[in-house]
Design a binder for these strands. Structure first.
Lengths: 354, 354
DNA sequence: GTGAAAGCGCTAACAC
DNA sequence: GTGTTAGCGCTTTCAC
């Protein structure tokens, strides 16, 4: 009836009619549900293929699942996150689930002063509103309470935050250990004035569980263990390239300059390298620089950044596995996975000058 | 009634009851539709706030809109794409729309040999199935026919592909001009053997409209215009870091080495820099390198890559604007926007040796 | 200006 | 095993 582009999309009813069965049968076949004879399954599948039927997730979602899992990233610019996403996608690929990404954009609008946490909360809500069957939160800025609230409503896996909860699963890197790896490496090279660039944490409540905070703690502890407690020097900016740039500017202006800078993330280290270059200093001859995440950029020829590898793909795959399990059985006990980081030494670290 | 966590979510019915109005009234208020008295609007809004009501997109989508726009990215690792996403998000921020990202992951699975184009097509379908009100396709690999098919079903804006269509809007960078900018810059510096690294294009049908193809054409034309037609040298790998690495390996193995390499994208240039460093050559003393996209990494201190800026945020914002317009009026004539690139000269290009 | 009621396309009880 | 039917939470005629 409908001419031109408006050809109504084929629905389960069309398939049922074409296959001469009930819509229930079609629905069951779609979901591999129990109670359909092979013959009927055959006919339904033929009809589906013939008509090119694809179920609408929205309609499915009204009663059952949408077969969609949402991933909330704090920032797409950080090259570490794609690793995690790849891990998730890879694990989900052979299932019927589809991954949808949401991210807080970092554009600073004049009037709007929504904090990162607010943007993130809004994003989480909007994903729930869109019927995600489950969600993965990567290093969420929200407080434990808000995360638990979300987890009460939808299967959830948190990546990066060091917080245990009965309501959601968690996958974290042993950030304290990773930080110690860097400090020990630098100390072994002979460095004493090893500074660290952290992310400023406005909310003290959640502070302790953020990955950056744990790295900073690991840094402090390792420095102390090395007998360098008096040399501890932390600058707090942000886990962005700009944060690294500004942090390094501060550190390089110290009366007694550090001989090594441990940036909390590779992306931060990128900014550090820029600032160091601008200051006319050579890496690693004048100053050593190390990062965290071992992103693909760290390996770049002109960079060769020493960095901590935290196996992002593995973390993503673990998270996806836990999420799928939890979607299947929401009351299953919660799991807490810790992965062990390793140090990848490249060309930005060497013995201190002199 | 429902105890514990299972507290049923508040629906439009709850709001209506609480405000002592009909569900129709609530629905109208939600959509700022015509035909509600200020008084009623007031009461409804109060009830919404009091109950913390949030409409479910799935349910809305069954009759009206989902207020969701989907963005399909070929690859999240390319640091240029976040620029576009920021542009889109920024434009959409003050509307009720929410942006959802989908991306083809680049994990190569042993058994699975789905091509990029297939993965992308599946992704587009799944976004349509999930009721996106509109979609932005960034440099889609699909053929014009498939894109048009998709555009017939859902408002669509294509970024990057140089193809006009009555069914969708298009936003492209003048890639030929950008390539000419690079070639002319290098030629002015005195280079003659200027090589180019392109993306291998398996499908000849769509080849001409892909951004990389247009850049390559621009390179050839500019070389010819400079009287360097005999020096044209194109290696086709891929728009990835690895593609740049492999391409540069090939070029550096030439009997007569090029004195400059124009990489089709910054991410490709990264790989080129790695290969050049491995070969023990200095940039720009021994060889010049230029990229395209002017991503944040190009500006990095230790990189300082000369690159073509194509204003990703602007492109994203334009695309979002066109999409919103098309969602509002699907039959509106299609628009084709071309943005003009500029060259950003940094430290990887200089006069050739000798 | 307002509300009753009919769907949207699917899933899940529940009959048969 | 199979089909009938009642919703899921919204939007949208269409009466009033």
């Amino acid at each position: 009836m409908d001419p031109g582009t408006g050809t109504r999309r084929v629905t389960i009813v069309d398939v049922a009619a074409h296959a001469q069965v009930s819509t229930t049968a079609v629905s069951k076949v779609m979901r591999n549900a129990y109670g359909v004879s092979p013959a009927m399954r055959e006919r339904v599948n033929a009809a589906i293929a013939e008509l090119g039927y694809r179920p609408r997730a929205a309609a499915r979602g009204m009663r059952g699942r949408t077969y969609t899992i949402g991933v909330v990233l704090p920032d797409i610019r950080n090259p570490f996150f794609p690793e995690i996403v790849d891990g998730i996608s890879g694990h989900v690929r052979d299932t019927e689930y589809q991954v949808m990404l949401g991210t807080g954009s970092r554009i600073s609008l004049p009037g709007t002063s929504a904090s990162d946490a607010e943007v993130e909360l809004r994003l989480i809500d909007s994903m729930v509103d869109r019927g995600m069957d489950g969600m993965v939160l990567v290093a969420p800025a929200a407080g434990q309470k808000r995360v638990d609230e979300a987890a009460a409503g939808v299967p959830l896996v948190v990546i990066g935050r060091h917080m245990r909860s009965a309501l959601h699963d968690t996958v974290v890197d042993d950030d304290a250990r990773g930080a110690a790896l860097v400090v020990n490496h630098l100390a072994d090279l002979g460095h004493r004035r090893i500074a660290h660039i952290d992310q400023r944490e406005p909310d003290h409540g959640r502070a302790a569980t953020m990955p950056n905070a744990v790295r900073t703690r690991g840094y402090r502890d390792a420095m102390t263990a090395q007998g360098l407690a008096g040399q501890i020097d932390v600058v707090s900016t942000g886990y962005t390239e700009e944060g690294g740039y500004l942090g390094a500017k501060q550190l390089l202006a110290r009366e007694v300059r550090p001989t090594a800078i441990f940036a909390g993330a590779d992306i931060v280290a990128m900014g550090v390298l820029t600032a160091v270059a601008e200051a006319g200093l050579r890496v690693p001859e004048d100053i050593s620089v190390a990062g965290y995440d071992n992103t693909s950029f760290a390996a770049l020829g002109p960079i060769g950044l020493t960095s901590v590898d935290q196996a992002g793909q593995q973390i993503g795959a673990d998270a996806a596995r836990l999420l799928l399990e939890r979607i299947a059985r929401r009351d299953r006990p919660s799991t807490f996975i810790t992965t062990s980081p390793t140090l990848v030494v490249r060309r930005t670290t060497a013995a201190p000058p002199g």
